[in-house]
């Protein structure tokens, strides 16, 4: 997009130029475009190497893949058998249910909460406080889930954990946040928001900063209070970016958050906590390292995401007239 804009301005500039300078200018422009293309090249090459070439590995999903036979070796082809087996597993129902519950709630709340945080932060007038709050809410994003999981296991322990001791002061019985199947998904959703909501608010904050301040002045003239200004100026101003984020989120509908769940999952909460990604991981890197089954599960997940994201894009174009590309 940036590239297009630049050449457009260049075109316009060209029209007002005398003929003699044109040839030279065209060469110059081509050279300029060339440098942009050159800058694009590493990205394209890397995408090709790391995203397109590995797609040939998807053949594994239709084989009974044995590494020692080699990638192009004499592997046994089994057709759709891996998929049939996955769907014949007694656990597959709960795995999909858990994945959907976690992914949908995380993504929905993961848009609403950051928007609220962004609006509240933009209304903070004291820069010192705002910067302080920003740092505090961004910080958890930079911690890895391995570290947070260890902290959580310790803090949320029903026997000796800090959180339950605090609850005990108010006479509340210990809650087993990470071991109670009914509470585990909630723990996942809340801790995920704690970690990511602050960081997620950055894009919305940027969008708010881009809103023309004269609009607020006009609203004020018309007698709008703070709430009204937020409703009629800030939110409409963020519409584009929110739409974009929603669309990107649709593709995540089968992403339950591997890093988080894998580090906190235990035998007691598998009923409500085991998701597609942790299941795939166990199949691929567990004791028997079944690459074929996990490749099939991964392929299935990609196809679902692809269909959903295309539909989402089509719908937003049709009904909201929003175009990403």
């Amino acid at each position: 997009m940036v590239h297009c804009d630049v050449s457009l301005t260049a075109d316009r500039a060209e029209e007002s130029r005398p003929k003699a300078g044109r040839a030279m200018h065209r060469r110059l422009r081509r050279r300029k475009a060339l440098s942009y293309h050159a800058m694009l090249l590493p990205g394209v090459v890397l995408t090709f190497i790391f995203c397109y070439i590995p797609m040939f590995g998807l053949t594994m999903a239709f084989q009974n893949f044995v590494p020692s036979k080699g990638l192009f070796g004499d592997q046994t082809w089994v057709g759709w058998q891996n998929l049939t087996f996955l769907f014949s597993l007694p656990e597959i129902g709960r795995i999909f249910r858990n994945t959907l519950v976690l992914a949908v709630s995380k993504n929905v709340i993961g848009i609403i909460l950051p928007v609220i945080i962004a609006i509240m932060m933009s209304e903070l007038r004291h820069t010192g406080i705002r910067k302080g709050v920003q740092t505090i809410v961004y910080l958890p994003h930079f911690l890895s889930w391995v570290i947070i999981a260890t902290m959580m296991t310790d803090m949320l322990s029903p026997v000796d954990g800090a959180v339950n001791r605090l609850l005990g002061v108010f006479g509340i019985d210990p809650i087993y946040f990470l071991g109670d199947p009914d509470i585990f998904p909630l723990t996942m959703i809340v801790s995920d928001q704690w970690k990511e909501a602050g960081y997620g608010s950055i894009v919305y904050l940027a969008a708010i900063m881009g809103i023309d301040t004269t609009l607020y002045e006009a609203a004020k003239m018309d007698g709008a209070n703070k709430m009204r200004q937020v409703w009629h100026v800030t939110l409409p101003g963020m519409r584009g970016i929110v739409m974009l984020m929603v669309m990107l989120a649709i593709g995540n509908v089968l992403n339950g958050g591997f890093d988080q769940v894998y580090n906190l999952l235990n035998n007691q909460v598998k009923e409500t906590g085991e998701i597609l990604d942790t299941f795939i991981y166990e199949l691929a890197f567990g004791r028997t390292r079944n690459y074929s089954l996990s490749a099939m599960a991964g392929l299935f997940k990609s196809v679902v995401s692809f269909v959903l994201i295309s539909t989402g894009y089509f719908l937003s174009y049709k009904f909201a007239n929003y175009q990403l590309f």
Binding site: F85, L89, N267, K270, E271, E282, L283, T288, L293
Partner: peptide, 14 residues
């Protein structure tokens, strides 16, 4: 075949 022993072990733990 289909990592059946692993799946069983996982179930057993649960």
């Amino acid at each position: 075949l289909n990592s059946q022993m692993d799946l069983f072990s996982a179930k057993q733990g649960e």
